[in-house]
């Protein structure tokens, strides 16, 4: 066993040394002439405002030029939600097999309330602001501020998680795990559906410019971007809640 550990350590050290030496062949950091800074990126910086109508280049690339990647990314999040829920559910096999549990009762969060008066009052103040901020991040994303669907969804999810943590399962501001999973699917579907619409209008997948609206190209693109951002927000928010619910769910006594 000692021998194996020593061998593994040797492999790790050798790989580190190889990577260190190999770093010498990389173009110097901060070099404006490096291939990464000159080949593809120029168009994103120079054209994206007129081509996509987004002042934030990152949003332009994320939601438009490489919008298909982002669909994949959203799907990854959804997949994670599915995987987390299925394995924590199949662990508690005692659940009624084959029976349909009404959605309203399906998600039971942490049952005990561990909020104190300070926490309760603080939460009452904090939650609306966090929610407002989440919405602001979504709306302000394309307008030259950092942020967008993913961040907004995560902030909104944090608001719900705070409420769940403070008020327990009875929180008024709550979404149950199974419903969250369905919502996450719908959110990603909204994203994909924007692409399907462009297919139906005769363009390529996610080609926002094809929309038959009386708008300039940039406006159509920013409309498309807002459409998918809403989908991303919904998916990310719902998935984080679903995973949280799966992790925090108290084992049912069977």
């Amino acid at each position: 066993m000692k021998f194996v550990r020593a061998g593994a350590l040797l492999v790790v050290v050798v790989m580190t040394v190889v990577l260190f030496i190999g770093a010498g062949a990389l173009p110097a950091i901060y070099n404006p002439q490096s291939p990464a800074s000159t080949h593809v990126s120029d168009r994103y910086i120079e054209k994206s405002v007129e081509e996509t109508g987004s002042l934030n280049f990152v949003t332009a690339v994320l939601a438009d030029y490489r919008g298909y990647d982002t669909l994949g990314e959203t799907t990854v999040i959804f997949t994670a939600g599915l995987a987390a829920v299925v394995l924590l559910r199949s662990a508690q096999k005692a659940d009624s097999r084959g029976k349909k549990v009404p959605l309203a009762k399906a998600g039971k969060g942490m049952s005990e309330r561990f909020g104190t008066i300070v926490l309760n009052t603080a939460a009452r103040f904090v939650i609306p602001f966090v929610t407002l901020y989440g919405v602001y991040v979504l709306v302000g994303g394309g307008e030259g501020n950092p942020g967008g669907g993913f961040q907004s969804g995560a902030v909104l999810a944090i608001a719900i998680i705070i409420s769940r943590l403070v008020y327990g399962e009875g929180a008024a501001f709550n979404i149950s795990g199974d419903l969250a999973l369905i919502l996450a699917g719908i959110g990603t579907f909204i994203y994909a559906f924007v692409g399907v619409l462009t297919l139906l209008w005769g363009g390529n997948f996610l080609e926002y410019g094809i929309a038959p609206f009386l708008m300039s190209a940039a406006e159509k693109h920013s409309l498309g971007i807002s459409g998918i951002e809403i989908g991303v927000t919904l998916c990310v928010m719902a998935t984080i809640i679903a995973i949280f619910d799966a992790l925090a769910r108290k084992e049912e006594v069977s």
Binding site: P146, G147, G148, Q151, A154, A157, I158, I161, F244
Partner: peptide, 15 residues
């Protein structure tokens, strides 16, 4: 953008 995302992800993952 990446910093913002990492901030929220940091909160969520710590939770």
């Amino acid at each position: 953008d990446v910093a913002f995302t990492e901030a929220v992800v940091g909160v969520v993952s710590t939770t």
